[in-house]
Simulated scan of single mutants.
Amino acid sequence: MTFSICAYDPQTGQLGVAALTAQLGVGKLVAHARPGAGASASQALINPYLAFDSLDLLAEGRPAEEVLDEVISRDEGREYRQLGLIDRNGQTAAWTGSKTPDWSGHIARGTAIAQGNRLVGRETLEATLDAFYAHPEKELAHRLLHAIEAGESTGADKEGALSGAVTVVGTERYPLWDVRVDRADDPAAELRSLVEDFDEQLVPQIRKMSTREDYVGELTREFMAEEKGGEE
């Protein structure tokens, strides 16, 4: 009941996931990414631990295909699941169980992989990947947004869309982008509006926040300098 894309940007090292679904709250359970590890989309009859366990194994430096085989083998409900993975080197892997609703499948292309179920057809995933690669100059979050907008334009989920998410991680434990629409008549349009707002108002601040290597952070240092200047 979902389609999604997991991707890696070799220019920035960012990893991300974008998804749309006919259910509530897709960002809560489907989209997962961890810096230095990879990104994952767990969907159809969701088992969130497929994503959690995959990211744990990817963080050890294991390749996506090997990780996929291991986590799927643990799950006796695997035929009802879908799982898309991309590792920190841009290698992809995916699983589509035989009992996921038609049309179901996945397509890998370069450093991105798209997967979906209960779709109008393969064309949704083809359009998703075409749009992703049509904008190589854009930041990963925007490329992911373009991708799911294009997928949605094909008709995508036969039941329509209700929620959407774009999640991107950079070098830090906290996400660079975590944009969610939990319920909307047109979640792709709502995501577009939120991404534009985030780009203007929030992401510039996140880029200046404390990091593992700079515990104070540029933003706090600016406030400290202003306070000190006001005392002189």
Rank of each mutant, 00 (worst) to 15 (best):
W177E: 09
V169S: 09
G90M: 09
A184P: 05
G61H: 00
V169D: 01
S193I: 12
T124V: 09
G155E: 02
D157V: 09
A114Q: 01
G77W: 14
A131C: 08
E65G: 09
L58D: 04
R109E: 03
Y80V: 11
R118Y: 15
V179T: 01
Y80Q: 15
A184E: 14
A150R: 01
A112S: 08
L55G: 07
E76W: 03
R78C: 13
E152I: 01
G61W: 11
R118N: 15
P175K: 02
E139F: 14
W177I: 01
A131L: 01
D157S: 10
A114F: 01
G110T: 07
L58S: 06
F132M: 09
E152K: 11
N117M: 07
V166A: 03
W177G: 00
A93S: 06
G90Q: 05
L68Y: 05
S73R: 15
G77M: 14
L145W: 03
R173P: 04
T111F: 06
L125P: 01
Y49T: 14
A112P: 05
R74S: 08
I86A: 00
I72W: 06
E70Y: 13
Y133C: 04
Q91Y: 13
L191R: 02
L162G: 09
D56G: 05
E123T: 14
Y133S: 05
H146P: 07
L55N: 11
W177N: 07
T171N: 15
S153K: 10
T128V: 00
D185G: 14
L50F: 12
D185H: 15
A188L: 05
G105V: 06
T128G: 05
A127Q: 10
R88G: 07
S54E: 02
G77T: 13
R192T: 03
G84F: 11
A94S: 15
G77C: 10
V169A: 04
N47I: 03
E139M: 14
L55I: 12
A134N: 10
N117V: 10
D186R: 06
N47H: 11
V179F: 08
Y49E: 12
A112V: 09
V179P: 03
E149L: 12
G90H: 08
L145N: 08
D178T: 07
E66P: 12
Q115P: 03
V169I: 00
D87G: 02
E172C: 04
L162N: 13
L140D: 05
R62V: 04
E123K: 14
I72G: 09
A94K: 15
E172T: 02
E172N: 01
Q115W: 11
R62L: 05
L145Q: 01
A165I: 10
G151S: 02
R192K: 11
E60Y: 05
A141V: 08
R143Y: 07
A150W: 03
T171K: 15
T171R: 15
W177K: 06
T111H: 13
L144E: 03
G121W: 03
A165T: 00
I148Q: 08
Y49W: 14
L129T: 02
K138R: 13
A114N: 08
T96S: 12
R118I: 15
D186N: 11
V166H: 00
I107A: 01
E60N: 08
G116A: 09
D102H: 12
D157W: 08
G61Q: 12
V168N: 09
A141M: 12
I113D: 10
I148F: 06
N117L: 01
E149G: 10
